[in-house]
Amino acid sequence: MERKYQVTESDLFDFFNGKLSAEEGRVILEWKEVSAENRKVFDAVRKENLVLKEVVRAQLIKGDYSSIQGRMAHRRRRVVGLKYWVAAVVVVGVVASVSLWDNSPVEDTRKSIAYIGRPARTAVLELADGGHHYLSGNEIRFKEEEGVQLAISDGKVVYDKKTGQGVKEHPVYNKILVPRGAGLYRIVLNDGSVVWLNSDSRLEYPEQFVRGERRVRVSGEAFFDVVRDTTRPFVVETDRQSVSVLGTEFNVSAYPSEPVLTTLASGKVRVLPTNGAKEVLLLPGEQSVLNVEGDSLFVHPVRISDVVSWKDGIINIENMALCEILKVVSRAYDVDFDTKLLPTDDIILRGSISSDESLEVFLAVLSKVADVKFKMNADGKIEVQKVN
């Protein structure tokens, strides 16, 4: 009588990681010899397991796998079950991604997606007098000691400068630039307020705050934890709006050619567009959206953790369209995508991944949950197309 085995992909991973009993291991080995198809699956999972051990450190916090249910059902008919697909979609994605790069010359690592690692962390401090300082680590702290302003990065003084007597009426602005692919940066201003600055972002701050207010300028994305000072409101300027607070926590996303998003975590903020739209007062858990033209402003509720997770090293794609996710990836890894082969109907995804992962791992995750594939073109752009 023929023996029938029900071996899932999860069982195979347990086998390769020594988690099965001797009897269970014997059943796996017998199942492997039943057919060439079983041996093929056995070898594929063995390779996936090696990738898991040596490459993959990504963890999907949550996700919607509805887009790959068809392929899951197909594999169930081949005896490899659904159970492991949900648990190990990252691993399968990395293995699948390897085949996507095969048509790139192996020796030309500059054009290989696998060559692009995790985001670096090198920001630039640009002084008003034209001086430049490269910032090691991922934090810079400003403080004043006996009339001298100090900028400290990675435990070392980046620069020191006499602040002069009294508070100036017309402040001199310095800049902190975080380029694409540079990761996030934490900045402690000399009033104690903390600013997290995302990739492809710029913070302009005064050497000294003037009387009556604390004013900074932002391009890109920043999260603010403002020290309360009732005598000096804290004002954040972007090209299309200003945000005024006394002391609170809020996030501002103001990238060029994109809507300006202001999200309040605690306290209250007043959002004032510069192009005629009516100002709004935000409450915690609310986000204002200012359109690209700057003349339309509306407010809607959001989950704060989804918006501000980037400052904790998590790239969140919760309910985001694929085209928007690719913008985030472009800024985080300093790459450009060619999306002309994608359908006009966008793909909405849910999930999160550590911002410390390599680009290859990130795209491997996207390739599985969005049913797309990536290929590095000769011009350096990454081509994206839907899997048929």
Rank of each mutant, 00 (worst) to 15 (best):
E213M: 12
V158R: 05
K47D: 06
L82D: 14
D295C: 01
A58M: 10
N138A: 11
D108Q: 10
K62L: 10
R77W: 05
A120L: 10
R75W: 12
K162S: 12
G380V: 01
K156V: 10
D64S: 15
R331L: 06
D334R: 02
L189W: 11
L184V: 03
K268A: 14
V188Q: 14
P256E: 11
N251G: 13
V7S: 00
E293T: 10
V365T: 09
S97C: 05
L282C: 07
I348E: 12
S112L: 15
Y65V: 13
D334H: 07
E258N: 09
R71M: 10
H74R: 12
I116T: 08
K19R: 13
K168A: 15
D160L: 12
L297D: 05
E318P: 05
V98Q: 15
T122Q: 04
G212V: 06
E318N: 13
L203W: 07
V86F: 14
Q165K: 14
F223E: 09
T263S: 11
E293A: 15
R110D: 09
F13T: 00
G137T: 00
G63A: 13
V195F: 03
M1W: 04
T274D: 10
F362H: 02
N291P: 09
K53E: 01
T163M: 13
R39N: 01
G164V: 08
V216T: 07
N377I: 03
E48D: 12
S21I: 03
R141V: 08
R57S: 11
L363A: 04
V89F: 14
G81A: 14
L282G: 06
V172T: 15
L246F: 01
Y333V: 05
G70E: 10
L272C: 09
A151P: 07
T274Y: 12
L322K: 11
S193N: 05
R180I: 04
P273Y: 02
W101L: 14
D346M: 07
N103Y: 06
G276S: 04
E258S: 11
W31Y: 01
E2L: 05
G267Q: 01
K143Q: 08
A120W: 06
V94L: 13
V252H: 04
V188W: 07
E213A: 13
S309H: 09
L60K: 06
L366R: 02
Q287W: 08
S67H: 09
G294K: 10
G276I: 04
G147K: 06
E37A: 15
A87F: 04
R303G: 06
H74W: 09
S330Y: 05
G130R: 04
H132R: 14
V56F: 04
F234T: 01
